[in-house]
Design a protein around this nucleic acid. Structure first.
Lengths: 355, 355
DNA sequence: CGGGAGTACTGTATCGGTTCAGAAGCTGAA
DNA sequence: TTCAGCTTCTGAACCGATACAGTACTCCCG
C-alpha cells in the first residue's frame, strides 16, 4: 500500500493538513515539527504529495500540450522546429511546467480523444493546419491556446506569435529578382493537403491549405509579380518530407527540366540544404550557376553559406510559452509579431551568362 | 462555472454515475439515454470527463515521462534519438498514453522537483548518466522506469532495452583493423562529465561517466588491443556537442596533427557526418585517404556512404514503451537486447600507401 | 407462479490532496 | 484581569471523477 498524507499524519500524530503544509507551505508550521514530519515521511517511503491529487484540487496540470501536425520524426529533425521547442521548454521550465507531446498524425478521432484527455493547462499549436479537428476540441475544453504562427484573424482573443511571412518571403523574392532572375522555381513542404513529391498545379498560392506555406508562397508571388513574372510561369514543387533528403528530391524535379530555373526559392532552410546538395551533385555551383534562398536561418545555413530569411526561432518559442503561462491583460498584447531579416550569403548571385 | 458530470446529471435527471458511463462505458446504458446525455452535455458546454478527476480516481496519468540528459536541442536533432522517440511515441499512442518531456539540464534540484511532480505513469531514461539524482526520485516514487540502454546490473527488476554496445563497437574496430589500420582516432560525445571540445586524456575507457560512450570506447579498445595497439597510442577526441558541426570540430583535432590517423572511429553517426565534412574540407577522400566508421546507421548515413553499425532505433523505442506499458511477467523478459549489424559502405577502405 | 438471468440505472465510498475558517495556547499591553 | 494579536495546528469541505454493490424491472423457462 502506497503511503499518503494520512499515513504520515497518523504516524506523527498530526492532522493531514499539517503534513500538507510541511511540503507546500513551510511557513505555516514550526520548523521542528516540519523536520519531524519529513523524517517520518522518509521512513515510511512517502515521496511527497501525489501529483494527481494536487492537480485535481489546485486545478493546475503543470504541463502544456504541444501539437504537431507532422510526424514526430520530421517535426523534430528540423533544427528550426527544435529551436522553437527549446524556447518553449525554457519558459515552461521557469514556470515549473512540462511539455506534453501530442503528434496529430494518424487517426483523427484518436487524436481528438488524446487532445480531449490530455492533462494540460493549455496548448501550443505548431504548424497545425487551421482546419484540424483537434482545434475544436481545445475550444470545447476552454483551455488557452497559442498559435506558433501569426494569423490575422479578426478574433482578437487569440494568442499568437509569429512573423510576417508574406513580407519576409517577398524580401527573399525581391532579392532574387533584383539580381536579375526571372526563371524561378519554388520549393515547399506541404503545398497540398497530403504529402507529395513533385511539381504541383496550384492555381493561386491562396489555395495552399497550410498557413505558413500559403503565406510564403504569396510573398514569393508578389515579388515576382513586381517584375512581371506571372504565377503561371513559376514552377512550384512540393516536397513530401520536411528533411534535407526531401529537399534534394524536390530540387531534382526543378533542376532536371528545360529550361532550368536560374533561382530556387525554398520555404525552409532544411529543404534548402537538400536543394544545395542536389545542385552540387549535378556539378553546378550554388550562387554562380544557380541561386538558392532558404527560410529560417538555422545554424547549418551559415556553414552552407545559404542566403536566407532569419527569424528568431528561440524567441518565438519563449514568447509562445509566455503568452500561455503569463496571459496578457490587454488584447493588444495577445498577438506578437517578430522581426525577420534577409541574410545574404554565397548561395545567391547574379544570373549566369546564357541563363 | 465550468460544468461537471453533476451538472449534466442534474440537467438530464439521472445520476452522476450514469453520465460517467455514457462517456467511459457506453455498454452500461441504453443508447437512447446515452444520446440524450451527450446532447445535454453538448448544450451545457461540457466537454467530457475532466482528465484530472479521472486521473486521481483511476490512478492512471496517461503519460510517460521521457528524461533527457542533453539539452533539448541536441537531443532532438540527432535522427537516431528522434527515431527512438518515434518508436516510443508509437507504442505510447497505442496505449492512449502521451509523452511528457523532461529535460535534465539546468539546476539539479529543480530537475528533481520536476521529476517528483510529473504526472506520469512511468519514466523512460534516455542517455541519462547512472549517477543522476533524478533516478533516485523515481525510485522514491515507485514508478516503473525503463532504461534505453542495456545495462548488465545484477538488479533483475530493472526494465531495460538496448544493444551490446561493447560487442558492436568491437565489430566496428575489427573491421578497421582488418583493413590494416593501426593509427586510429576515436571521436565521441560526452567522454567526460562536462561537454568539452578536443583530445582528452582518459586513462581507461572504463572511466567515462556516460554508459553508452564508455561501452563503445571499451569495444574499440578491445578490437585495437587484438592487433597490438595499446590504449595509450590511440587519440581520443571529445566533441562538446552532439551535432554534425560538433563532429567536424572534433575531427579537426584529430586530422590536424602529425602523424595523421588513417582511421577514425566515431561513436555516433551524426558526429561521423561532421567528421566526413571535415575530411572533405581538407581535400581528402573518405574511404581512400582516411577511413571513418560511425555508429547508429541513421538515414543520412546511407546517403553519405558511411560505414557504420546499424542498430534498430525504432524498435528500441517501441520496446521501451512496451516494457513500460505492458510490464512483463517473468524477470527474464525485463531486459531486452537487440541485434546490431556492421554496414560496410564507401567510407572505409584499406590503409593508403604511405599511411 | 417461482426463480434464475440479464439489463438499466442509482447511491455511496473513495482516490489524495488543498484550502480556509476557526480553535487552542501563549504573549504582552492596557 | 482582560483581551487583542500572534503562532500553530485542526477539521471539514471540496476538487471531479470512477468503482462497485445493490435495486428495480423485465424476460424467459419449467
Amino acid at each position: 500500500m502506497k503511503p499518503t498524507l494520512q499515513t504520515v499524519a497518523d504516524a506523527v500524530g498530526v492532522s493531514r493538513s499539517t503534513v500538507s503544509n510541511a511540503y507546500s507551505r513551510p511557513d505555516q508550521l514550526s520548523p521542528d515539527l516540519r523536520a519531524k514530519i519529513l523524517e517520518a515521511a522518509q521512513k515510511l517511503g512517502y515521496s511527497g504529495p501525489s501529483p494527481a491529487g494536487r492537480s485535481l484540487r489546485s486545478g493546475r496540470a503543470g504541463a502544456i500540450g504541444v501539437l504537431f501536425s507532422d510526424e514526430l520524426s520530421f517535426a523534430f529533425t528540423d533544427p528550426y522546429a527544435v529551436q522553437f521547442l527549446r524556447g518553449l521548454a525554457e519558459t515552461a521550465e521557469e514556470h515549473g511546467t512540462g511539455l506534453l507531446l501530442i503528434p496529430l498524425a494518424g487517426d483523427k478521432d484518436d487524436t481528438a480523444a488524446t487532445v480531449r484527455e490530455a492533462l494540460v493547462d493549455g496548448f501550443c499549436a505548431y504548424c497545425v493546419p487551421d482546419w484540424h479537428p483537434s482545434l475544436d476540441v481545445i475550444q470545447d475544453r476552454r483551455l488557452p491556446m497559442v498559435y506558433a504562427e501569426w494569423r490575422e484573424d479578426g478574433d482578437s482573443g487569440l494568442l499568437a506569435v509569429g512573423i510576417d511571412d508574406v513580407a519576409a518571403a517577398r524580401d527573399a523574392g525581391r532579392h532574387v529578382t533584383a539580381l536579375g532572375h526571372r526563371r524561378v522555381a519554388l520549393v515547399a513542404h506541404w503545398i497540398g493537403k497530403e504529402p507529395f513529391d513533385g511539381p504541383v498545379n496550384l492555381t493561386r498560392p491562396e489555395d495552399a491549405p497550410h498557413h505558413v506555406t500559403r503565406e510564403r508562397l504569396m510573398g514569393y508571388r508578389d515579388a515576382l509579380a513586381e517584375v512581371g513574372v506571372g504565377w503561371a510561369d513559376v514552377v512550384t514543387v512540393s516536397a513530401a518530407r520536411n528533411s534535407r533528403e526531401g529537399g534534394a528530391i524536390a530540387a531534382a524535379h526543378a533542376l532536371d527540366r528545360a529550361p532550368r530555373p536560374t533561382a530556387i526559392l525554398v520555404a525552409a532552410d532544411l529543404l534548402a540544404l537538400g536543394v544545395l546538395d542536389a545542385i552540387k551533385q549535378r556539378g553546378l555551383e550554388p550562387g554562380r550557376d544557380i541561386s538558392v534562398v532558404g527560410f529560417d536561418d538555422i545554424p547549418e545555413a551559415e556553414t552552407a553559406r545559404l542566403t536566407t530569411i532569419r527569424q528568431p526561432a528561440l524567441d518565438k518559442g519563449r514568447i509562445a510559452g509566455r503568452l500561455l503561462l503569463e496571459p496578457p491583460e490587454s488584447d493588444g498584447e495577445r498577438q506578437v509579431v517578430l522581426p525577420t531579416q534577409l541574410i545574404v550569403r554565397a548561395s545567391t548571385g547574379p544570373v549566369p551568362n546564357g541563363g
